Computed example of a mutant assay.
Amino acid sequence: MDASFWALVGLIIFLGIMAYIKVPAMMGSALDKRADQIRNELEQAKKLREEAQQLLAEYQRKRKEAEAEAAGILSAAEKEAAILRDEAKAKTEEYVSRRTAMAEQKIQQAEADAINEVRAAAVDLAVVAAENLIGKKVDSKASDALFKASLGDLKTRLN
Rank of each mutant, 00 (worst) to 15 (best):
E117A: 14
A126P: 02
L31Y: 06
F147G: 02
F147D: 01
A112F: 12
E58P: 02
R157C: 12
E117D: 08
K89S: 04
V96K: 06
E43S: 11
I38M: 09
S140Q: 09
K79A: 10
E65V: 11
F14T: 05
S140E: 05
Q109V: 04
A57V: 07
D113R: 09
S75N: 02
R157A: 12
R49A: 15
L74N: 01
K89D: 08
A88F: 05
L56C: 08
L11I: 11
A121R: 13
K148C: 05
L154Q: 09
F5P: 00
K148P: 02
E117S: 07
V138K: 01
L15Y: 05
S150Q: 09
A121T: 03
A142V: 11
K79E: 02
K106Q: 10
R63N: 10
I134C: 06
M1K: 09
L74D: 00
K141L: 15
V118W: 04
E111Y: 13
Y20F: 12
A101S: 08
I38P: 01
L154M: 09
S143I: 14
A82M: 02
G72K: 04
V9C: 03
E87T: 03
S97Y: 07
E104M: 14
G28P: 00
I83G: 01
A52I: 11
A121F: 09
I115M: 08
D36A: 15
Q53C: 04
I115T: 10
M26S: 04
R98N: 08
L151F: 14
A129V: 01
E65I: 04
R119D: 02
G16M: 13
R85G: 08
I13V: 14
D153Q: 13
A130T: 04
A70P: 05
A122Q: 09
E93N: 06
E43G: 06
E65S: 05
A149N: 11
N40A: 15
I73D: 00
S97I: 03
F5S: 12
K89R: 10
L15G: 05
G10Y: 06
A76L: 07
A3L: 15
D139A: 13
S4I: 14
A120D: 09
I17W: 05
M27R: 04
G152D: 15
Q60P: 01
E94M: 05
A88E: 09
